[in-house]
Amino acid sequence: EFTQISGYVNAFGSQRGSVLTVKVENDEGWTLVEEDFDRADYGSDPEFVAEVSSYLKRNGGIKDLTKVL
């Protein structure tokens, strides 16, 4: 089950073990991109978060400006 990723309007994530599946949706709710990120592939949590965040930004993730990150 996908849940909204904090700080984004149209990005959602689903966690299974160490694998986080993220997706970005358009205004109609269609999935634009979907990608798996395995936490085990990264040396640290900040590196993992930075990679996921960068992916979302590159692929149309819209920041939720009503929330302070």
Rank of each mutant, 00 (worst) to 15 (best):
G29M: 02
E51M: 12
S18R: 06
S6C: 15
D38Y: 03
K23Q: 04
N59S: 07
K57Y: 10
Y55S: 02
S14T: 09
Y55C: 06
N26G: 07
E28L: 12
S14E: 04
T21D: 00
R16V: 07
T21P: 01
S6I: 11
G13P: 00
D41I: 07
P46Q: 15
E1W: 11
V68N: 12
E35V: 13
G43D: 11
L56K: 00
D27C: 15
T31N: 04
A40R: 12
T66V: 09
S18V: 04
E51W: 08
N10Q: 04
P46R: 14
K63W: 12
A11S: 03
N10T: 05
I5N: 04
R58I: 08
A40W: 07
S18G: 07
Q4P: 12
P46T: 14
V33N: 08
F2K: 06
G43R: 11
G17R: 02
T3F: 14
I5F: 07
Y42M: 01
A11Y: 03
Y8M: 05
V24S: 02
K67D: 13
Y42D: 00
K67H: 13
L69G: 13
P46L: 15
I5W: 06
Y55D: 02
T21E: 01
F12N: 02
N26I: 07
L56N: 01
G29P: 03
V68Y: 11
R16D: 03
V49Q: 12
T21C: 07
T3E: 08
T3I: 11
G29Q: 04
V9Y: 07
L20T: 02
F2V: 04
E28V: 10
F37E: 00
A40Y: 07
R16S: 06
A11C: 14
T31Q: 05
Y55K: 03
A50T: 07
G61W: 05
S44E: 03
V52I: 13
Y42W: 06
S18A: 05
G29W: 03
N26W: 05
T21L: 04
D38K: 03
F12P: 00
R58T: 08
V49M: 14
E34V: 13
Y55W: 15
A50F: 09
Q4R: 14
E51I: 13
E1P: 10
Y8T: 06
V52N: 02
G61Q: 03
E51T: 11
F48G: 00
S44L: 04
R39L: 04
G13E: 06
T66D: 13
G13Y: 14
F48N: 00
A11E: 00
A50L: 09
E35F: 12
S18C: 12
P46M: 15
L69V: 14
T66H: 11
S53Y: 14
R16W: 07
E51P: 00
K23L: 06
K63T: 10
V22Q: 01
V19D: 00
D64S: 09
E1I: 14
E28T: 09
L65G: 10
Y42N: 01
V24I: 14
S6K: 12
E35W: 13
E34M: 15
A50P: 00
E35G: 08
S6M: 11
V9K: 10
G61A: 15
N10R: 08
D27Q: 11
D27A: 12
T3V: 12
Y42L: 01
A11D: 02
S14M: 14
E34P: 02
D45N: 07
V19W: 03
Y55F: 15
V33K: 07
N26H: 07
L20F: 10
S54T: 08
E35A: 15
N26C: 09
D41R: 09
G29S: 03
F12V: 05
S54I: 08
S6F: 10
E51Q: 09
D64H: 07
V33Q: 06
G7Q: 05
E34Q: 14
I62C: 08
F37A: 00
E35T: 12
G60V: 01
T31G: 06
E25T: 15
D27S: 13
E35H: 14
G43H: 10
D41M: 10
S14C: 15
L69C: 15
S53R: 14
L20N: 00
E35N: 10
I62E: 04
G7F: 05
D45V: 08
K57L: 12
Q4F: 08
V68H: 11
I62Q: 07
T3A: 09
T31P: 07
F2R: 07
Y8W: 15
F12E: 00
G13S: 13
F48R: 00
R58Q: 08
Y55V: 01
L32F: 08
F12G: 00
F2C: 09
S54K: 13
A50M: 10
G17E: 03
S14Y: 13
A50H: 09
D27I: 11
I5L: 10
W30D: 13
G17Y: 05
D45Q: 07
Q4W: 08
R39P: 02
G7M: 06
V19H: 02
E34Y: 10
K67L: 14
I62D: 02
A11F: 03
D27L: 12
S14D: 02
E34S: 12
V33L: 07
V68A: 10
S14G: 02
V33F: 12
I62R: 09
E25H: 10
F37S: 01
E1Y: 11
I62K: 09
I5R: 04
N10E: 01
S6D: 11
G29H: 05
S6E: 12
F2S: 04
N59T: 04
P46N: 15
N59A: 07
E35M: 15
F2T: 05
L20Y: 08
F12R: 04
V33G: 08
K63V: 14
D64R: 08
S14F: 13
A50Q: 09
W30K: 13
L20M: 06
F2H: 05
G13T: 07
F37G: 01
K57E: 15
Y8A: 05
V52T: 00
D38P: 01
G29N: 04
D45T: 10
R16Y: 06
